Structures are given as C-alpha cells and as structure tokens.
Amino acid sequence: MRVNRILLSTALVAVALVVQVCILARLHLPGAVPDLMLLVIIALALVWGHVAGALVGFCAGLLTDLAPPADHAMGRYALVLCFIGYLAGLARPDKGRVQSATVPLLVVCGAAAGSTFLSVGVAALVGETHEGQTGLGSLVLTALIYDLLLAPFTVPLIMTLARRIDNDPLADSSGTGTGTERPTASLMTSGGMRLKKGRIGSARTGLLTRPAKPRIRTARIKGVKRL
C-alpha cells in the first residue's frame, strides 16, 4: 500500500474506533450496536479494491479486539472484518468511481448481515456464549437498520477522501493529448539538422518551401518589334 493510503486508513480507523467505543457502544440501543468500523472498511474497499480492503479490515479488527471492553476471543473481529473487506472490494466499480448509491447500499446490507452471522458463528466455534443474548434474527435486523441509517453520513465522505488521496497530478499530462493536435514530422537535411514540420501549409521557412522562379523583366522599346 502507498504511504498516503496507510496514513488515511490509520486516521480513519483511529477515529472510528474512538467513536465506536466512547459513543456508539454506550448508547444502549436495542439489539446490535451501530458498526462505524464496518462502514469505514466498506468505503475504503469500494475505492481501493479487495486486497487493500482485506488488509485494512484485518488491522482494524485487531485494534477493535484489543480495545476495551475486550470480552471476546482475540482475533475474532479481525477475521470478520478481513473477510468482509475482501468481499466488499470485489464489488469495486471501475476506477473506484460509483455512479449511483445502489451498489454501496447493497454492499452495506450484505456486510451488516454477513458480519453478524460471521461474528456469531466464530463465537460459537470458540465456545463463547453470553446469557441473555439477543436472538440472531433481532441482531441481524437491528444491525441492518443502524448501519443503513449511518451509511449516508459516512460512506460517501470516506470514499471521496480515498479517491482524492489516489489522484496523481501528473497522470493527465503523461498521456498523448486530447486528440486536437496534429502529429509533427521531422525532416533531416543534408547537414544533419533536424527540422520539424507542422501542419500542412503552416511552414514558412525557406528550407521547406519551394523557391520561386525569378521573373525576368524586359524593357519594351517603342518601335522595336518583339522577337
């Protein structure tokens, strides 16, 4: 990954982690908790692709596993976000430019449901059970609602920042031009000098134009017939 991508993803993950732990986790909403970290991973994966999405997802999930209150197995959320980031990156449009909001919303819906199923499945595999836990159907439904309500305020902004980071000011000038200019040809003179020939009819140098024949003016004398 580029340095600018690493800096941007680190800043976004740090902000999302602080908001997730200090604000969203303390709202005590029914069912699931709004997952801002998941939305950050989705937005970056839709712009940068599946490889970057998996890497950022794994690192962000590992930080989430370490953040208090860490009441689950280490690496559980890292595995979930790595898998979600990889799948979200596969839905990346051409050049990372989304033409409509349909694709991001569909990806958010699939990621919210998929991350809930994966998190519950991994918890069951490692033997983690919590008394009084909300049913799986209620968790999936509330995760969908919360993430869809939060997505319009976060995903477009993060995608715009990610695209601006990747902009190269020299990318446009390195091309062959806009097509309005005509190609130039070069001529070699006998002395080894290279001359550039532009558009037809625009060259006015003496070496490229045909020399004009001199006119010989004859004086006409009265009374003498012209031979």
Results as ranks from 00 to 15, higher is better:
1 M>H: 11
5 R>G: 14
6 I>D: 01
8 L>Y: 07
8 L>R: 10
8 L>C: 13
8 L>N: 06
10 T>K: 00
13 V>R: 01
17 L>V: 05
17 L>H: 09
23 I>Q: 03
25 A>L: 09
26 R>A: 15
31 G>F: 08
32 A>K: 04
33 V>H: 04
35 D>E: 14
37 M>W: 03
39 L>M: 11
42 I>M: 11
43 A>R: 06
46 L>Y: 03
47 V>A: 09
47 V>W: 02
48 W>N: 11
50 H>A: 15
51 V>D: 12
51 V>G: 12
52 A>F: 07
53 G>C: 12
54 A>G: 14
54 A>D: 03
57 G>Y: 04
60 A>I: 04
71 D>Y: 06
73 A>Q: 12
74 M>P: 04
75 G>P: 06
75 G>C: 05
76 R>T: 03
79 L>D: 00
82 C>Q: 03
84 I>T: 02
87 L>T: 11
90 L>G: 03
91 A>D: 04
95 K>T: 10
96 G>T: 11
98 V>T: 10
98 V>C: 15
98 V>I: 13
100 S>M: 05
100 S>A: 11
103 V>S: 09
106 L>E: 00
106 L>P: 04
107 V>F: 01
111 A>I: 00
120 V>G: 04
125 L>A: 15
125 L>G: 01
126 V>H: 02
129 T>L: 10
129 T>E: 13
130 H>C: 00
130 H>V: 14
131 E>K: 01
132 G>H: 10
136 L>K: 01
137 G>I: 09
140 V>W: 02
141 L>Q: 03
142 T>W: 01
142 T>V: 07
142 T>K: 02
143 A>Q: 10
143 A>M: 04
146 Y>K: 06
148 L>N: 05
148 L>T: 07
149 L>C: 15
154 T>V: 15
157 L>G: 07
160 T>N: 10
167 N>L: 13
167 N>Q: 13
168 D>Q: 13
169 P>A: 12
173 S>T: 12
176 T>H: 08
177 G>S: 08
177 G>D: 12
179 G>C: 10
179 G>P: 09
180 T>Y: 12
180 T>R: 11
183 P>Y: 02
183 P>T: 08
185 A>G: 02
188 M>Q: 11
188 M>E: 13
194 R>E: 13
194 R>S: 13
200 I>Y: 07
203 A>D: 15
203 A>I: 01
203 A>S: 13
206 G>C: 05
207 L>M: 05
207 L>F: 08
208 L>E: 12
212 A>V: 11
213 K>F: 02
219 A>H: 08
219 A>R: 12
220 R>V: 15
222 K>A: 14
222 K>L: 09
225 K>Y: 04
226 R>W: 05
